[in-house]
Design a binder for these strands. Structure first.
Lengths: 146, 146, 146, 146
DNA sequence: GTGGTCTAGACCACA
DNA sequence: GTGGTCTAGACCACC
């Protein structure tokens, strides 16, 4: 559980931690029930204050992705396969998606390229069985562009 | 040039202004060369401090989307048709895209649904089918450009 | 003596145990003189550390609801019928009641609805209508006492 | 806006602040749209650290009772007359109500007395027009006890 | 002016 | 050992 942080970024550290964990959950690297390092431990590993880690964990808890336990620390609460999102999540999320995609389009990335980037990111979340291991029939994305 | 702002949002006002303008550019509503209202005018229209508008315009200038002349005010500097993005844009943008898509996946939105949302957003930007390409019945905006 | 605990709750486990026992006493399920399982036994049943059970029992003892003998274990010390509360109890309790009811009112529950909830909770405690008083068809528990 | 705190209480300070504000909202002392003192100001007034006030305000924000604004500070977001609570609120609240009422019953307070306390608390939330001032037709609660 | 972030260190509650 | 609370002071972002 080592996260790479950029202490000079304008993105707050606690948000970087949160983002990396969200991505790890999306990619399946952290499955439901997985345990995360304790706040103090992770703070030491990252060379930051434990309050900062605390804030990241608390944010993830509020988002429903983590559950915090006095005994066993932080556990991953949900997962890609836990079920559909809570109502209200999608609307707010699509607003942010719209802004982000608009940014690329305004900068001259054409629609198929944008959609290709989205598809590429999504495939990067599925292991796609690097070894001969069963290759779980993933959706075929990427050819809907163009 | 009427923007809808949410003064109670956790998103800073200057960022909301910037976001709305970026979306207007992406949708073709604001084409290259279009002029924006003066900072003071827009500030009055929105009922906010003109420094806030100034900050939004300056951010857009830094991003290469606006150019600001002392005499002609703010003009849209670039466009979906202007050409490919500056080098360095895409990498940073894809990092943010990755985080945003991860959020949806972690909350249980499956990959096809995510890709569908991306496609839906893009079609909502489509400026009335500039090329003969199928022109999926989107809203018809954008004929004020050129 | 089976208690349902939520190990992931933000309510400490020892408090959950205490709460469930208080509710059992209020409903008449545990009458004065009833014996509770030993701390070690209950700890095993619940799959938790016996110190946690100990802490719950000790808290109940401090509150005057339990008395603990070295030989006969934990016995219910008092009851709804035992008599009026110790002086000082009511003031502190009403302070907490005030806060709790305020929460509902602030969230838009109107006064009659709040009072209705209070009444409903009380009838759920009713030990099979001890006096002739209307006896609104509640669940029938509590005949194991005396 | 002066709150009375007990620094020696085992109830965390930030929770005491939150409780007092909830009660003020319930009693109508703080109506929707009312502004609260800034975190730093209130911290100075109470002689505590501003982070503690911050935590109380943030908790109220999460509960939907406050909205925080960089410009105008904290404003009361909702009210007794704003509308019904969000779904899910009542269930969790009734669980806590059950525990609290059980405590009184177990200590020997009889049901009518408990209900009377509830009614008394509720009437304390309605001003009941202490001066001749219009006496806004409030709900008639309190006589349903006994 | 406002709130937000980060650091640092102390002490306590829980299991 | 875990997380939770409180304090203290610094710096930054927003308006």
């Amino acid at each position: 559980m080592i996260l790479s942080l950029d202490l000079d970024s304008e993105v707050p550290i606690y948000l970087q931690i949160r983002d990396r964990i969200v991505e790890a959950i999306a990619s399946g690297e952290l499955a439901e029930g997985s345990s995360l390092p304790s706040t103090r431990q992770l703070a030491v590993d990252l060379g930051i204050n434990f309050h900062t880690v605390n804030k990241a964990y608390d944010l993830l808890r509020q988002e429903g992705l983590l559950r915090i336990n006095r005994k066993s620390g932080a556990l991953v609460q949900r997962d890609a396969r836990t079920g559909p999102p809570e109502p209200g999540f999608t609307d707010e999320w699509e607003t942010r998606l719209r802004t982000l995609l608009a940014e690329a389009v305004a900068h001259g990335v054409d629609h198929p390229a944008v959609l290709g980037s989205c598809a590429a990111v999504l495939t990067s979340f599925t292991p796609t069985a690097p070894t001969a291991q069963g290759a779980d029939h993933g959706a075929e994305q990427g050819d809907s562009a163009s």
